[in-house]
Design a binder for these strands. Structure first.
Lengths: 125, 125, 125, 125
DNA sequence: GTGGTCTAGACCACG
DNA sequence: GTGGTCTAGACCACC
């Protein structure tokens, strides 16, 4: 599913990230479908699990996949599993807000950004 | 300069990130001043260099520091920092809000989360 | 005389090499004129002397400058530039041929490789 | 395992290269056996790791050893050694010939240089 | 079994 | 000497 190019000057984990982003973008990996486990993929590619882990972490940070400890990693979907995703959103927002506060971003500015998104096309939920 | 709390449930690298964010925010670490090298700090704290490396990478991603290979890691200039950091926060929040909207999280729920943080200890900025 | 761009993704020593090649090509640095000393230029640019040294070594290897121990580095005369580069090629080839001989590579095999290059597109010089 | 001679006029890294070439040639270092790590050997010899690094790089370039990031450096198998070295010679010669052609060196001149070496002491292989 | 964190230590690019 | 990437193998929390 994934082919590494050792002549490529990019680090391996970046190559892995790129490949998965493409596979997800091209809908080869459908939403909610499970990615190979960290250890399995590492074995298949004959590389270290840590390298895959790093790639998956970054893919999660970039919002392409989500990981559930003890279960696996999955492509982010638009429809179901609201609870899990909403929890992640809540956690991220909490973290982000703390940073914003420290950085002197006013609450008002945050609210404006949120309004921008929620009020697009006039539909306020 | 930094004290780790092994009873803390947060991973070590997050503690390191937090401490440095505070030191920079409180201006104890002035702009452009050099952070301890990855290896030195790891030795001081008796932890693995990789853990420090991970913390520094995240600090760089969050716009607090910048690293030059072969030279060291440095605090971002205050003048640039605020703008750089606020831009990232804005981008992240925008992305997060879009996801939230798609996921059916109400604007009200987001605002509650933000309020929680900003109203801690009664100081609203 | 030289300005570094830290936002440039190329390593510093490559930037230095490039700048000097340009200065020499544009005749801003006349033939036989002396380049700044390794230490001086390093101080001026606030970078490590090793970096300048590396750049100068490469410029010498490429036949643009020549260095005299204890005296300095100088621009190769335009008229000699060709000769200097050819001398380097001659020296390298001599060294390589000796290795080849030791390794049991036949003269015939070497000639075949050379023929390959020289006979490309049928133009034999 | 290796003893440096500071009275020797050759640079240290060349001495290191020479020693290892001998050890490998004499089969003291068996095929696929691991060389000491760059840092360890540097510590043992009380020299800078970069010097060892340089020696190892050159040994790899010459086809005596191979290095795997994060794992170590290893002696090339005897059966592969000859092929590896000949490949390097071929690659180097190809690169050199291209340069020569561009610089206006005639094929005849190259051949003369090769003849010089191969016809030394009347033994032509 | 899965992901997440951490240690120990390696080579590599750069200064 | 400094940051960056990677390997190997460990322990933990979760399911």
């Amino acid at each position: 599913m994934i082919i590494l190019d050792y002549k490529d000057r990019r680090p391996i984990y970046e190559q892995v990230i790129g490949k998965f982003q493409d596979l997800i973008a091209c809908d080869v990996l459908k939403e909610d479908s499970q990615l190979p486990s960290v250890r399995n993929l590492a074995m298949d590619l004959s590389i270290n699990p840590n390298t895959i882990q790093r790639a998956y972490s970054e893919l999660e940070r970039r919002g392409f996949i989500y990981s559930i400890k003890g279960k696996g990693s999955f492509v982010v979907e638009n429809s179901n599993m609201k609870a899990a995703k909403q929890k992640r959103i809540y956690d991220d927002l909490q973290k982000l807000t703390k940073e914003a506060k420290v950085m002197g971003v006013t609450k008002k500015e945050l609210l404006e950004t949120i309004d921008e998104i929620y009020d697009e096309r006039g539909d306020e939920r």
